[in-house]
Amino acid sequence: MARFLFRRLLQLLFTLIGISILSWIIITQAPGSPIALTMDPKVSPKIIEQMEKNYDLDKPIYQQYFLWLKKLFTGKLYSFKDGRPVLEKIAERIWNTLLLNLVATLIIFSLAIPLGVFSARRPYSFLDNLGTFGAYLGLSIPGFWLAYLVILATVKLFGYPVLGLRSFVIEGLSTPEIVLDRIWHLLLPASIMAIHGIAGLSRYTRSSMLEVVRQDYIRTAKSKGLSEEVVYYKHALRNALLPIITLFGFLIPGLIGGSIIMESVFAWPGIGRLAYQAVLARDYPVVMTILTISAVLTLIGNFIADLLYGVADPRIRYQ
């Protein structure tokens, strides 16, 4: 086991270095420069050159890469956009993104699994068909479009702000009301973000359940005289949820990697918007750091999923 861990971690490290070099090349070789993007007749080109030099943009690309690495590890990496430490910029947004994604994930799991389980209880009944229809609808509706409709509808119906982390005119609100206000601003984007996931996961759970109830050990359990309910909700459900562990692997990077679209639509100050703006502005230090962080998280997620398999399924053993 220890050898396996060591080998796996070493493998991860090399993958990570590979990813960062590749991303560096792609990002810096994309056309455009962090500075020449403005077309201001009051600015002479000489000054633009000087500014590029100050950002080391005149150095060869491999030197720039090592400079980036060095600055990242010495904490001297500053954004081109506002001269602030990159890690600080990421840290102040990470909680917002984490909160939104965590709530969305909670909604997905707490709604999708019951939905899938109940659908599979009586397959092809009216309710199950309704669920299938709803799932296809949820999968095919573009999230940003639905978000706009929901925003429009709530504004027309309630006349209460929906965008951002909180309302701006909060004079005269009591503390519980402020909490409610925060929850309101959180619940809407999280629910819309969750729709896609609910649709997918509920179908996944349903087919997994249907698969499991046909297994021999379920028949055995039934013939032992256990009640339908116990067999279904205890024995079958446990086995059916096994494949869902794979999803945890995707969950970790998903929690931090913000959703560009939803964060923009709901004016939510998160990582996704930061990354998007940084790409548009060719803010290399920020783009690279966010990419590296998500690469690390994806690798860790896969690693944890591997380990969890070993824990949950005795048939899998690592050498």
């Binding site: 707490s110 109940f118 309630f158 006349g159 005269g172 409610l180 619940l187 629910s191 909700y233």
Partner: peptide, 27 residues
Amino acid sequence: LLFFPLLFLILLGINIIFVSSRPTPIV
């Protein structure tokens, strides 16, 4: 299995009551 969906709906309900009952103060 039923508890979480219900909790979600209740939370949403309370919130809707809250937001539909509050006028914006003039500041």
